[in-house]
Amino acid sequence: MTVKEKNVVFFLSKRVFRQLLYVLMWLLLGGIVFPMVLSFITGTNYNLVEAIRNITLGPMLYIIIGCLALLSYSDFKILIQNGISRRTYWKAKVIAFLGISGLSQVIGILYVFLIRQTLSGTGWEKYSLFMQIYGGFFKNTTVAYLMSFLFAILSSFVFSLFCILIGSIFSLFTKKQRRLIFLALITLFVVGIMTTADGYNRYGFTVSSKVINVLNFLAGYDKSTAGKGLNPTMPFIDLIIFGIFSGICSLKVMKHFKIRNE
């Protein structure tokens, strides 16, 4: 990595951290302070411990960081003003978001262990989708935990990459175009669900066995091991392939970034 690339990584990371802190501050306000004040006014009991215990920090950060990864154009503007190429922007953005999302998941995991366990002692497995689906595969719980963490981190990487891709696609359009596309997508989504549900009601719904086979394969379902939990290697492979795909596509899209007249 060149000095310039490092500086861009630093620049973007700092920006994302600031935005992250800002969002977290509001969440804290909305999720803890506001209910506290409300309960004080209404005279009901407020349980702070309960509130802290209920914070799902990992998934929360996961979503927030994904949303922050969507924003592209404003960073691009300031970087191109400062003589940074699109490629370097892409590289730095990917590195920055991989770092931040990875870090956030480590923090999420530590939070689960330290706070939730010291406050209540309940297990965390039931909150982990990975443990629910693939947990049964492992005989050793430590290995299961470890794999679960790895999965959390990897999936946050991939989610960030995917959000970078989506955000970069949206950045190709002007604000007005973006609004139109957004509206079109929502309409398509609603109409799509309605017609699907309608079709299901009227004719019943069968999915082709080929599709089911593909889905089974991707999920790691194998008839021979049925009942013991699914094969956990598959979701990792899926994620890695999807992540690489998202990364490459976002580079291709960002190479078309240009300063717009708006």
């Binding site: 060149t2 310039k4 690339e5 003589g83 940074i84 190429s85 490629r87 370097t88 190479k255």
Partner: peptide, 9 residues
């Protein structure tokens, strides 16, 4: 797309 050149402009 050349950082080094762009850094001089």
């Amino acid at each position: 797309e050349n950082d080094e050149a762009l850094g001089q402009l």
